[in-house]
Computed example of a mutant assay.
Amino acid sequence: MKTRRIGQTGLEVSEVSFGAAALGGLYRACPREQAMETLSAAWDAGIRYFDVAPWYGLGLGERHVGDFLRGKPETEWVLSTKVGRLLRPVPTGTVPDYSYVDPLSFDADYDYSYDGIMRSVEFSYARLGLNRIDILYVHDLGGYTHGAERNAVHLRHFLDSGIRALEELKSSGAIKAFGLGVNEVPVCIDVMTNADIDCILLAGRYTLLDRTAVAELLPLCRRKGTSLVVGGVFNSGILATGPVPGSHFDYMPANDDVLAKVGQMEAVASKHGVPLAAPALQFALRDPLVSSVLIGTARASSLERNMKLLSPAIADSIFPEFDNFTLVAPPLGAEAVRV
């Protein structure tokens, strides 16, 4: 698989990457054997960049990914995980419902400070069982997760000291790049106004349907040399399933406006003889600012099906036909499960 560079670093990642949220049991259990089968399918498809987080299954996702990569040549894979939440043990059966099924017996506390980020990295090494993390993303800063008042506190902690932890880790060679892992644009602007970052893992805001990132964030990234890793390309499923009953957008049932627009997009795709999921997956990769497109699943069959959507390449001339049906800045559901 082709690779692209992260920001202005020397780090190259595969154009398609694997997101491990589902391996943490998001919405349905993911036993170890199933996780290994899915990761093997990703590897066999040429994916060499794997993204995980302590949040995914409250440590379970990191354990699965670490177990898998430990048996692979160290020079062939790239790994990112996230900071911003510290896990602490809780009694069995008392884990709050975060939409993860059969998670490990931990809860999470937010900490974006220097000490919190350094502790998070050490804990991730232990859960992964690996001695290398290539990229660190600051997870879920922003008003959607915390509300405006609380986010102001977290943002101050990060800019006052947390960013220094990431800079030290990079300058020491412990990591090769760092950035944000979020579902929203405003916090990206806030951070980039005050600090330089290598990359942003942005979910759901630069897709065939949702172009929220286009007006302000993309030009800023181009000026500052910051790459995007784009997640949520199917916007919680609706760009893969189409506007069928029960389809979801931003982790919630799609409203009538979204259903109508996706129906019109589906008609465009059908006219050109392709499933809507194909242009949805290929859309962001048309932009050289995008280093990788992240796909996530807990089933090998789903992974293999999605990889087939990358070929053949859809002609650039088709994509403008979708532009009249986009949502520019839709609200994110208050109870959304973050990437």
Results as ranks from 00 to 15, higher is better:
315 A>L: 06
201 L>N: 15
285 L>W: 12
42 A>T: 02
288 P>S: 12
318 I>G: 07
291 S>Y: 07
176 K>T: 04
8 Q>R: 10
119 R>S: 12
167 E>W: 01
218 L>W: 01
318 I>Y: 12
265 M>I: 09
114 Y>W: 15
194 N>A: 10
20 A>Q: 05
7 G>R: 00
281 L>A: 12
100 Y>H: 15
25 G>Q: 13
84 G>S: 12
146 H>L: 15
198 D>W: 01
7 G>T: 01
251 Y>E: 08
48 R>G: 15
253 P>L: 01
256 D>M: 03
177 A>Y: 00
42 A>R: 02
144 Y>H: 12
20 A>G: 03
10 G>M: 09
86 L>Y: 05
167 E>A: 10
44 D>Q: 09
289 L>Q: 08
218 L>V: 10
302 S>G: 11
242 G>F: 06
223 R>K: 13
99 S>T: 05
115 D>L: 07
74 E>R: 14
255 N>H: 02
286 R>Y: 10
152 A>W: 03
119 R>F: 03
194 N>P: 06
250 D>H: 06
175 I>Q: 04
178 F>M: 07
280 A>F: 00
302 S>A: 10
1 M>G: 15
76 E>W: 09
90 V>I: 06
76 E>Y: 07
310 L>I: 10
263 G>Q: 01
92 T>P: 07
58 L>P: 01
136 L>S: 01
163 I>L: 05
295 I>S: 08
214 V>R: 04
152 A>C: 08
68 F>N: 14
36 M>G: 02
103 P>T: 12
97 D>A: 04
123 F>P: 07
337 V>S: 13
304 E>W: 10
327 L>F: 13
113 S>P: 08
229 V>N: 06
153 V>A: 07
124 S>V: 04
165 A>M: 00
127 R>I: 01
335 E>T: 11
333 G>Y: 13
296 G>F: 02
56 Y>H: 06
220 L>W: 05
176 K>Y: 05
50 F>N: 09
86 L>M: 14
212 T>D: 14
304 E>F: 12
115 D>H: 14
168 E>H: 03
114 Y>V: 13
106 F>I: 02
209 L>D: 07
214 V>H: 07
49 Y>P: 04
230 V>S: 04
165 A>V: 00
23 L>R: 09
326 T>A: 11
60 L>F: 09
320 P>I: 08
323 D>C: 13
308 K>P: 07
40 S>A: 12
281 L>K: 03
301 S>F: 04
105 S>P: 14
89 P>G: 09
60 L>P: 01
240 A>V: 00
213 A>Y: 02
211 R>S: 09
3 T>F: 11
312 P>W: 09
143 G>L: 08
238 I>Y: 00
208 L>I: 06
283 F>G: 09
132 R>A: 07
316 D>S: 13
79 L>E: 02
61 G>H: 02
65 V>L: 05
29 A>T: 08
141 L>E: 04
78 V>T: 11
105 S>L: 09
72 K>F: 01
327 L>D: 08
317 S>V: 05
165 A>L: 00
22 A>R: 12
194 N>K: 10
279 P>N: 06
321 E>R: 14
22 A>C: 15
212 T>P: 03
253 P>A: 00
284 A>Q: 03
284 A>I: 14
252 M>P: 06
310 L>R: 15
273 G>V: 10
332 L>S: 14
121 V>G: 02
